[in-house]
């Protein structure tokens, strides 16, 4: 699991940082991450659970492909937890997974 301790929390680089074919794609993926973080924030504050689950689902599928397996794993953990929880569960129940995902997304860098 992508749970590093606070002291090592620097930027996360894509596994494909040195792959010329992927450079442009990784860059655009990273450039769009702040928008996703914002979308996660607003889904949480407006209590839109379905949207949050979908955002996590999409990151889970896409992030590893762009060389960010830790983001994928954090998104997977959030999605799985939400699927197992009763539909009536408050989103605050997933706070630590949400925070973890947002933290990793905020630290992703393309080089």
């Amino acid at each position: 699991m992508a749970n590093q301790n606070a002291s090592s929390r620097g930027p996360i680089l894509s596994e494909y940082a040195n792959d010329a074919d992927m450079a442009e794609l990784v860059e655009s993926f990273v450039a769009e991450l702040p928008k996703r973080v914002e979308a996660i924030h607003s889904a949480v504050t407006q209590a839109r659970g379905t949207d949050l689950k979908r955002l996590a689902h999409q990151l889970r599928g896409a992030a590893p492909g762009y060389g960010f397996p830790t983001i994928g794993a954090a998104a997977a953990a959030l999605e799985d937890l939400m699927r197992q929880a009763p539909a009536t569960a408050e989103l605050s129940a997933f706070k630590s997974q949400i925070d973890e995902l947002i933290d990793l997304c905020s630290r992703a860098a393309h080089r």
Partner: peptide, 10 residues
Amino acid sequence: SPDVHRLLKA
């Protein structure tokens, strides 16, 4: 997911 489209196309 448009990310998957982009990734697969590349």
